[in-house]
Design a protein around this nucleic acid. Structure first.
Lengths: 125, 125
DNA sequence: ATATTGTATATATTATATATATACACAAGG
DNA sequence: CCTTGTGTATATATATAATATATACAATAT
């Protein structure tokens, strides 16, 4: 698994790591039980502290994406990721419903809304 | 206009001031053009710094609730609906930014997102 | 044993939010 | 005018939260 960090990004390093690992899972690039880079190795590769990689893995573990075992390593968790993805998309749809309602109330057209979305989507982070 | 602050509250002083003035407006206790206490007088009454009252009034002015004139004072503004609309759209954009970020994380494409929006928009009447 | 793994504690650094003091600029009324 | 009351601008202090670190500890594998 290749993980990169951008120094120019204002996004915290541990967030960058978390996102990339999550994306690998969502894209099916990794599977249940796959071994992740050790927090030490990853820290060395990225030239950052062990604490920061630890922080990322700790968060991911709490969120159910990975499991860590002392002395062995960290592994992709055995859960139905597609199900989790669907659930999250469902949550997004609920929030979008509220937004759509509010847009109608404010007389924001569908095209205008799409345009806003497009701008936000293309904005680099 | 009577304004109180609680120093036991964890809410910032300027927020307490802002809320009370907004509520007076919403409740119709004050009308367009009404004079507010001067930032100095209010600061003295509440035994806080002028900067803090200034901060509250400054925010309220930016949000369109009041207007301030040097040498004269601060007044309740006429509620400008277009301004309020702009403000609400801005809030929507902030929420959309979060959603877009999450979509990227979940590998949901711009087109897919647009499609979801379109369905939701046309769905409800 | 030794090297590799994750963990825990205490701490430093940075960023942001909140509040302040003080000097400045404009307006009104004696 | 000029004094007093208004809002404004600048530079700064303080507190809190977010981010990142160093280092010592504990479990596992070989």
């Amino acid at each position: 698994m290749n993980i990169f960090i951008s120094n120019s990004s204002k996004e915290p390093i541990y967030e960058q790591i978390k996102k990339q690992i999550k994306q690998s899972i969502y894209r099916g690039e990794v599977q249940e039980g796959d071994l992740l880079p050790s927090i030490r190795q990853l820290a060395k590769d990225l030239q950052i502290s062990v604490i920061t990689t630890k922080r990322a893995y700790e968060d991911l573990e709490r969120e159910g994406y990975i499991t860590s075992v002392v002395g062995k390593g960290s592994f992709i968790a055995g859960q139905n990721m597609e199900l989790i993805r669907e659930k999250r998309i469902q949550l997004i749809e609920e929030r979008l419903t509220e937004i759509v309602d509010e847009c109608k109330e404010l007389d924001v057209s569908l095209d205008q809304l799409k345009e806003i979305i497009e701008l936000l989507y293309k904005e680099e982070r």
